[in-house]
């Protein structure tokens, strides 16, 4: 267990740039752009003579205290919109991490064979199983956790910017901010990571297998094999043998092998949401809660994918044991 902890730590040392700095910088850039947009809006607004606060002064207290007009139900709607912003921003950051993890998996068992440094790791009493599993854990758990934390913190800063911008116009919306549920959002996102890991397993397994197996250009192999096979299947109409359209193959083979790192990919397989009132954002948000996401566990797709992923990780371990330098 101690060895495993240090192996994951090693992955973090090596990939600090991708796991930590890439999502962090993305978040900062996004926030800075957002800040600039607010400033630009203010400047343009003033130069065109749009004086929002004077207008509000003229209208009396109704705008400077907009919350006064909202009842509890409306407040919870506002809170839901804020939560959506948090979810959206976090998902955006997790997407960035997904790209990082895609390339991390492709290099994880290849790069050190190419620069021969795998011989150093192999000179230590670490089993190949532990080595490979530590890399799977870094891709499936460590990177998403870091990403979610950065996403939620960044999302909160985004909301804060909005509130401060509103304050400049004399609109006090602190109370609205209290209607957001950052802890619940963070908790839900963290709780979704196991599901995400399970769903992403075929992609992680496939990329790691290519990484452990390829003597050169793992990227090319990883992309060319699934896409090539899909083209062949479509060309010869092979899926007709199973009375399935070629599209089925595209979604379930190359799609699952290459695209499963995209967050929320499982949503097609969840149980239906039922009747959602389009105007009731809060209610809609509640109905796409954890139990909605985890209902995907009832579909065979995620389990078959995970099993295939596990087999491919097993194969990657075998190749890690016997493959020599690239």
């Amino acid at each position: 267990m101690k060895t495993f902890y240090w192996l994951v730590k090693r992955e973090y040392w090596e990939n600090r740039g991708g796991f930590f700095r890439a999502p962090l910088i993305t978040a900062i850039v996004f926030l800075v752009l957002n800040f600039m947009a607010i400033v630009l809006g203010e400047v343009l607004g003033r130069s065109r003579g749009l004086h929002f606060n004077t207008a509000s002064d003229a209208m009396g207290s109704s705008l400077s205290n907009p919350l006064g007009n909202l009842d509890n139900k409306d407040l919870s709607q506002v809170g839901a919109v804020l939560d959506m912003t948090l979810y959206g921003f976090t998902t955006f950051i997790v997407c960035v991490t997904a790209i990082v993890v895609f390339f991390y998996c492709l290099g994880a068992l290849y790069d050190d064979r190419r620069d021969r440094s795998f011989l150093f790791w192999k000179s230590l009493p670490i089993s190949d199983t532990n080595t490979v599993l530590s890399k799977v854990a870094s891709a499936a758990i460590l990177a998403p956790v870091i990403s979610v934390v950065i996403g939620v913190v960044g999302g909160l800063i985004l909301l804060l910017m909005g509130v401060i911008a509103a304050l400049f116009h004399g609109i006090n919306v602190w109370q609205v901010l209290l209607e957001a549920h950052p802890l619940r959002v963070a908790f839900n996102m963290v709780c979704l990571i196991p599901l995400y890991a399970l769903w992403a397993l075929p992609t992680i397994g496939w990329l790691m297998l290519c990484s452990a197996w390829a003597r050169s250009k793992p990227f090319l192999w990883a992309i060319a094999l699934p896409l090539g096979s899909a083209v062949v299947v479509q060309w010869f109409g092979l899926m007709g043998l199973f009375n399935l359209p070629a599209a089925w193959f595209w979604t379930n083979v190359p799609g699952r092998l290459l695209m499963s790192l995209i967050p929320g990919g499982w949503l097609r397989d969840t149980s239906s949401i039922g009747n959602v009132d389009k105007h009731d954002i809060s209610g809609a948000l509640d109905s796409v809660g954890l139990s909605f996401h985890y209902s995907v566990l009832g579909s065979p797709n995620i389990w078959i994918g995970a099993a295939v992923g596990a087999v491919m990780i097993g194969a990657a371990i075998w190749f890690r044991r016997w493959r020599e330098e690239a």
Partner: peptide, 21 residues
Amino acid sequence: RDKLMEEVCFIADVAVLPRWL
């Protein structure tokens, strides 16, 4: 091999330490 490596050590080549270490 896993058991063996507790009692065996090797320097495979010069400069095989990972560059980021």
